[in-house]
Every structure is written in C-alpha cells, then in structure tokens.
C-alpha cells in the first residue's frame, strides 16, 4: 500500500516532468527551426526595403508596416470596447439575463473560426460599408475577432479584485466611476493586459481573415484606407506559391522576433507597474 503510493508518486512526477519538458522542447524546436532557416536571410536591407519580383528578392518593409498598422489599430479598437464591456458586465449590472446573454455571446464568438470573421468582414466592411480592402477593414475584422477574448479575460481580472477595495473607495465618498478607475482597474490591469496580449498574438499571426479584408498588396501603405499585406500573409503566399522559401523563412523569423519583443516589453512594463502598486 505504502509502496504503491510511493510508486504512484514517482510515476506522476515523471509524467509531469516529461510533459513540461516536451512542451518546452516543442516550442524551442519550432523557434530554433525557424530561426535556423530564417536568420541567414536577415539583413538591414531585408527589413528596410520593399520586395521586388513578388517577393523573390528585395525586402519585406511593407509587410512589417502592414502587420503593425493592422495589429495596433485592431487593438486600439478592441481594447476600449472589450474592457468597457467587461466593466459594464461586472460593475454596472447585476447578474441577470442580460449579463448571461452578453457573456454567452462573447463565449460563442471566441470559438468561431477566423475565416468566418474574414468572410463577415469581407461582406460587411469591404463590400457593404465600401471600405474596400484596407487596413481599416482588416483592423475592424480583427477587432471583432479578438473582442471576446479581451472581454473574457478583463471580466475575470476585474472580478478577481477584492470587494474590500471597492468598499473602501465607496466608503470614502467615491462614485462608482471613480471607484472603478482608481481602485479596481489598477489592480485588474495585469489580467487585462494578458487578454490584450492574447488578442495581439492572434492578430499578428492571422492570415485567413486578413487576406479577405486587408488584401495582399505589396505596396507600402500611406493611409488606413490602403490595402496591405501582413508578414503572416506574405509568408503564406511565398511558401504556398513556391516563390521563395528562404524569404518565407526570413519573414517568419522577423514575425517571431517581433512577437517575442512585444511580449518582453509588455512583461517588463507590467513588472514595473506591479512593483509600484504593491
């Protein structure tokens, strides 16, 4: 009996270790594989010049600009909407049919494949609203796609803030809005940021929804009404149409490095914020 318990414990530890190592191993392998094939292509001209011959040669500057423009605009639209909805659901309504419907809607949307959002964006933003293939159409579509994630994570983060903070603020004569902005949101910010980062990750790597709504032109965009090609789409087209595998890997390497860099910066900012607020 006792021996069996010890054996079970050892097996469990072994299995848990193995899963952790395997997970980390797969991640490292993918990263290493992409960087191994992509890094040799990288140079200053690769990121500072426009592509020529459909991307067979030249750089990928327009796709870098396109990726960041699309992602930043999508986050700028989805973050206030998502956080606002979360605040409304948690602080301004009592639990009831309305909150259940909104929450159910958000959860259902979170599970919809991105291509469906692409199709919707194409029909609604590109055609019906006449925005054409553009950064704006793409960003609106991506915003709709990541909104449920931001709502869910923000809602959980806000709910996790102890009620005692709210009571202290109310008891000092704070209004609900003052209480939300000064006592609740600062404590919920790390959790909210997690949701925003998840949304950013999905936007930056999205292809299907983007091709439908932002197009795939290789011209450098000059306004939000211009079409763009993102790095993920560029990578997909280069590989899919056999234009240039080395440049595809180079693009993938830049994409991966960008995502890592943004995550590191966000994490660093968060640590600084937490250090000041605890």
């Amino acid at each position: 009996m006792n021996n069996r318990a010890i054996v079970a414990h050892k097996v469990a530890v072994g299995v848990l270790w193995a899963s952790a190592v395997l997970t980390l191993g797969i991640l490292v392998f993918i990263l290493a594989y992409i960087l191994y094939h992509g890094l040799p292509v990288l140079s200053w001209s690769f990121i500072s010049q426009s592509p020529t011959e459909m991307g067979r040669s030249g750089g990928i500057l327009p796709t870098i600009v396109g990726t960041f423009a699309l992602t930043i605009l999508a986050l700028a639209i989805a973050t206030p909407l998502g956080v606002g909805t979360a605040i409304f659901l948690t602080e301004y309504t009592r639990p009831g049919p309305l909150t259940r419907v909104v929450r159910f809607g958000a959860e259902s949307l979170a599970g919809v494949p991105s291509i469906i959002f692409g199709l919707f964006g194409f029909m609604f933003f590109v055609i019906y609203l006449g925005l054409g293939w553009s950064i704006l159409s793409g960003a609106l579509t991506l915003a709709a796609m990541i909104l449920p994630t931001i709502i869910r994570t923000s809602e959980e983060a806000i709910r996790a803030v102890p009620d005692s903070y709210r009571e202290i603020s109310f008891a000092l004569g704070g209004t609900r809005w003052q209480t939300v902005t000064r006592a609740v949101l600062p404590s919920a910010l790390p959790g909210i940021l997690t949701g925003v980062m998840l949304g950013m990750g999905r936007s930056i790597g999205e292809t299907a929804a983007v091709i439908f709504t932002a197009g795939s032109t290789l011209r450098l965009p000059t306004s939000v009404t211009d079409p763009v090609r993102t790095m993920a789409v560029h990578f997909y087209i280069l590989a899919r149409e056999g234009i240039s595998m080395p440049n595809a890997y180079g693009t993938a390497a830049i994409l991966v490095i960008s995502i890592l860099a943004v995550n590191f910066v966000a994490y660093w900012l968060m640590q600084r914020f937490i250090a000041r607020h605890s």
């Binding site: 102890p162 005692s164 903070y165 009571e167 202290i168 008891a171 404590s187 607020h277 605890s278």
Partner: peptide, 9 residues
C-alpha cells in the same frame, strides 16, 4: 472596517 486593508498602493 474590521480587517485592516490597505489599497495596493
């Protein structure tokens, strides 16, 4: 309040 709770600041 009963429990001494500072705001996290």
């Amino acid at each position: 309040f009963a429990l001494p709770i500072p705001l996290p600041m």
